[in-house]
């Protein structure tokens, strides 16, 4: 089964991620340059960096704003890009040529943005102050914390099978809305733990991974209803990032503090530490290549970003992001 996924699914995945002929899944890093930050409360630089695999180069996109946390791209219109940042949300509707702050003073410290894949007028933003939602493509925003016990939120995902369903990871665990964030209910069989990342398999939509603060990695195999802890060695660790290979749902990775990168090749049943070769065991972001090559990327705290083509057995150092604190390392369907 695994080999089928490896060779057939990349094509389907690539087709699904490149619905526009001139777009392709592009690796981005939302980061702040903190290593050189001395005697100051502000990093020396910050921004969104995108990786051009054709020229093997990193370039910046978007305005220079401090504390950029992530981006989201409208799946129906790759020219519409949203930046989640300390100032709120900044949007481009012309592929990054011009930008406009679309949130006001009531929205700030936005960590992640999710766009309804069927109706992109519905946009959801998770921030340290809770959830904000726009129902008009980002023109206006409203608070959407009803039902949340604690408002601090980070990962937010729209269920592509039933787009009225939205999941958000909060300080008090995982919450679910079935009415487009008008009301939230706690996911009953999920841990009471701050949720730092939430990823769904692109090919097995029932499989999800959750990264937590202080309780390691959890997995759900029933579309997010029941969650069980995996990786006993990480059960007390802060795991900042998880990812599932879009080409093979059995291949998973997790990165955290003082634990490096852990990988699974059997759908989460067993995990192996693969941190050797990284410059630091403190990993803040990981991701699989969205094009299905099997390559994994990992960013360490201030000590550089690395990639591996053998599931972490060996690592190559991409020195161009050295010194960075990477908040999000992922792929977005950007126009080439």
């Amino acid at each position: 089964m695994k080999s089928i996924y490896r060779f057939i699914l990349p094509l389907g995945l690539a087709l699904s991620l490149t619905s526009q002929a001139d777009t392709e899944p592009t690796l981005f890093a939302a980061l702040a340059m903190t290593k050189a930050q001395e005697a100051s409360s502000l990093p020396t630089d910050s921004g969104l960096f995108i990786y051009d695999r054709h020229s093997d180069s990193w370039d910046t996109i978007g305005p220079e704003i401090l504390f950029m946390n992530s981006i989201a791209v409208d799946p129906k219109d790759p020219d519409t890009i949203f930046i989640a940042c300390g100032n709120g949300i900044v949007r481009s509707q012309d592929g990054g040529k011009s930008w406009r702050q679309v949130t006001g003073w009531r929205e700030s410290d936005v960590m992640r943005i999710a766009i309804d894949p069927e109706d992109s007028s519905h946009i959801y933003a998770a921030s340290v102050w809770g959830v904000n939602v726009s129902r008009d493509g980002g023109e206006s925003w409203e608070n959407a914390n009803r039902g949340l016990h604690e408002t601090w939120s980070r990962p937010i995902v729209v269920d592509q099978r039933q787009t009225r369903r939205v999941l958000v990871g909060t300080e008090a665990g995982l919450y679910e809305s079935k009415d487009r964030a008008r009301e939230w209910q706690r996911v009953a069989h999920s841990p009471w733990v701050p949720v730092l990342d939430l990823q769904r398999s692109a090919t097995d939509l029932d499989t999800w991974l959750m990264a937590t603060e202080g309780q390691g990695v959890f997995i759900s195999r029933d579309d997010g209803r029941k969650w069980t802890s995996v990786v006993p060695e990480l059960a007390e660790s802060n795991i900042y990032s998880v990812s599932i290979d879009p080409a093979d749902p059995d291949r998973m990775i997790a990165g955290g503090w003082d634990v490096g990168v852990w990988v699974s090749s059997d759908g989460g049943k067993s995990w192996q530490g693969r941190g050797e070769g990284l410059a630091s065991p403190n990993v803040t972001a990981v991701t699989f290549d969205a094009l299905g090559s099997g390559r994994i990327w990992a960013s360490t705290f201030e000590e550089g970003t690395f990639y591996s083509d053998d599931l972490g057995r060996s690592w190559q150092h991409d020195e161009r992001l050295d010194g960075a604190y990477v908040f999000d390392l992922s792929f977005a369907p950007l126009r080439r």
Binding site: S40, N238, Y240
Partner: peptide, 17 residues
């Protein structure tokens, strides 16, 4: 502060030594 458990103290001390 909107920072993480493992980095917040370090980053605070960058300016408040």
């Amino acid at each position: 502060f909107p920072s993480d458990w493992d980095t917040v103290t370090d980053l605070i001390a960058r300016s408040k030594a």
